[in-house]
Simulated assay, not measured.
Amino acid sequence: MSEVVRLYRFKGLLSSRAAISADELMTALEISRATLKRDIAKLRDQLHVPIVYNRELGGYQLERDQTASELPGLWFSQEEILSLVTIQHLLEQLEPGLLGAKLQPLQKRLAQLMDKHGLASQDVAKRIRIVHAGKRQVVAKSFELVAAATMAGKRLNIWHFNRQNGITTEREVSPQRLVHYRDNWYLDAWCHLRDDVRNFSIDAITQLEVLETKAKEVSTKAIDQALGNSYGIFNGAAQAWAKLKFTPERARWVAGETWHPMQETAFDADGSYVLSFPYADDRELIGDIMRYGADVQVLSPATLRSKVQKCFLEAAAKYV
């Protein structure tokens, strides 16, 4: 195990026992006596963990009233530092400006660590590029309030704009989890107006307030049953199975994609790729099918096949 993991485990062992012998520590941590002495010295001298040896109990312990002390942390290897910086930069590119102010202290600390390990020349910004497609702007304050309520288990009163019918509805919801899907943020929540699980696009929340009322807790299983079996972001129990057939040329790409967790796949003799999966709402599905133009054919159900055909014919008519 890495040193940082071992030292945290060392601290945990000391906190969990009245006293623990050197032999027990070496066995639990799988280290030599020499490493044990170095670890104790580092914990005491560099990290200021109050370790003492109790002769009566025959083992090491933390000084009384110091069992709740925390390690100051953030001592990592070069690889771990670069990984942290990379993750931080990915978050920054994922949602520019959304958490910038909140991450500044972390950025400063990571920069200091990079300098210490001779990594100052590593310009992460030049090594990572995220391309956004169809990304909608989220108001930073709205995202922060939604995230805070979700983590704190508090209800929200929201005004949500329904793009399908153009109507804004006020409703009270119990946030369950945040979802980042296709470059946009959504909230899975229990809707007290509809008395059911619903999914809300955070950028479509025009106004909101965090309530002091405790949120209704919904099990992950129940949320997945309501939202996880449908296709894409739309909720609802699966109503039908879509069966699509892709050309051999397009199969080279689609065969490596996951369209649905429950999908079933097969190759025909000519190399065509057949993909089947359940869906509840066909709006997003039709758009995805049409992206492939002549490289895809809807085999079933007939209703979906008819809708896709109608969409293609209407699109073609605009170019006559």
Rank of each mutant, 00 (worst) to 15 (best):
G73H: 07
M26S: 04
Q46F: 03
E212K: 13
I87Y: 02
K310Q: 15
A28R: 14
M1G: 15
T247Q: 05
R291K: 13
L94R: 14
R177H: 04
V4W: 09
K245R: 15
R38W: 01
F234G: 01
A240D: 15
V218E: 07
L113K: 15
S83I: 10
I20L: 06
V274M: 05
L7N: 09
L98R: 13
G232V: 03
D270L: 04
R291I: 03
Q46T: 09
R252M: 07
A68V: 10
V139F: 00
Q61I: 01
L145F: 06
V4M: 12
T27V: 13
A189C: 05
A280V: 01
Q93V: 05
M290H: 01
R6T: 11
R155I: 00
K307H: 10
I128M: 03
V210I: 15
A68H: 14
H160P: 02
L285M: 08
N229A: 04
A101R: 15
A149M: 04
G232L: 02
K216C: 02
L74D: 10
S32P: 00
A316F: 10
L211Q: 13
L313Q: 14
A148V: 01
L71D: 12
K318E: 11
L187V: 04
L244F: 07
A41D: 15
A266E: 14
E24L: 08
A266S: 14
I202F: 02
K116H: 11
Q263A: 08
H48N: 13
E284N: 07
M151K: 12
Y8V: 07
D65I: 03
A111D: 13
I130Q: 08
A101E: 15
P96F: 05
V210S: 10
I286N: 07
N54W: 04
L82M: 09
A226E: 08
I167K: 13
D282I: 01
P261W: 02
